[in-house]
Design a protein around this nucleic acid. Structure first.
Length: 266
DNA sequence: AACACACCCTGGACGC
DNA sequence: TGCGTCCAGGGTGTGT
């Protein structure tokens, strides 16, 4: 579920495992993930260099190659990073593997091939070119208010629009709206100051707690505090706040899960 | 401008 | 057990 919290934890994982090790060789198993770079250029950019630091913006993860260009990773709908020594532990759907000179490997795992691997000279320029909005975690409440003010339409689609705010996807937007008690189809123009304040607080809480509780790992659901929708995000499941039945509705072109009691229809 | 929809790809879940 | 259909957490492009 690679949205901002997941990617943030992938970044921390990479920081803890893959930095400052010389890349002897890369293994690219699928060219479909390449984004604006050829196999040859990717190999040339990586081989012989080490990842020196990382940077995350929204759902994009960047890793600098010594003091040169940056490796760009985007996970699409599926994926994670895996660091391991024994090739027997190489996960299925490993699309790009960095083979380090210490005998370990770092794999970009991406089952559905919607992920992207690229090489960019400058993450800031890339973010501008891709027309990505500010990272969700970097938004203060005034900026959030400002972003919403220049947008009409439904609140869920605004939260998920990467050109407005980078990092929020379908799952975590559901969680934010649930915690804020706002129906996803509510028009932004119908949110009063108090509702925007509540939504901002929910956004920050969801992002920070999800990161803290292990977003991107399998045990996230077990670690989450009571009252989160996420583990109950299923049609007919029990709402963790009121006990009512969770419903699936269509919003922003995706399946959205809501509690009709806690999030009354506008 | 905002929205619905088809599409990209793989594979798990579900119904028969 | 086997097979077809539907659906999934991202993003893009098209038509309205």
């Amino acid at each position: 579920m690679p949205e901002l919290p997941d990617v943030e934890n992938f970044k921390r994982y990479l920081d803890a495992t893959g930095l400052h090790k010389r890349i002897e060789h890369i293994t690219l198993t699928s060219e479909k993930v390449l984004h604006g770079v050829t196999r040859q250029k990717l190999a040339a950019a990586l081989t012989g260099h080490a990842l020196s630091r990382t940077y995350r913006h929204g759902k994009h993860l960047f890793a600098e190659l010594d003091d040169g260009p940056w490796l760009m990773l985007h996970f699409g709908m599926t994926g994670f990073l895996a660091y391991f020594q024994n090739l027997d532990d190489d996960p299925e759907h490993d699309r790009l593997r960095l083979d380090f000179d210490n005998g370990y490997h770092l794999a970009f795992v991406n089952q559905r091939l919607f992920g992207e691997v690229g090489v960019v000279e400058d993450p800031a320029a890339f973010i501008t070119e891709q027309e990505l909005g500010p990272d969700a975690l970097a938004l203060d409440e005034d900026a959030f208010r400002h972003v919403l003010a220049e947008r009409r339409g439904q609140v869920k689609s605004a939260l998920m629009d990467q050109s407005l705010i980078a990092g929020i996807g379908n799952v975590y937007s559901d969680e934010m709206l649930f915690q804020a008690g706002i129906h996803p189809k509510t028009l932004i123009s119908d949110l009063d100051d108090a509702a925007v304040h509540t939504l901002y607080a929910a956004m920050m809480n969801v992002l920070n707690v999800a990161i803290d509780k292990g977003a991107g790992s399998a045990d996230l659901f077990d670690n989450l505090p009571q009252g989160w929708l996420l583990p109950h995000r299923d049609e007919g499941a029990k709402c963790p706040r009121c006990g009512g039945a969770i419903e699936k509705v269509s919003a922003a072109g995706r399946g959205a899960y809501i509690c009709p009691q806690c999030q009354p229809e506008p």
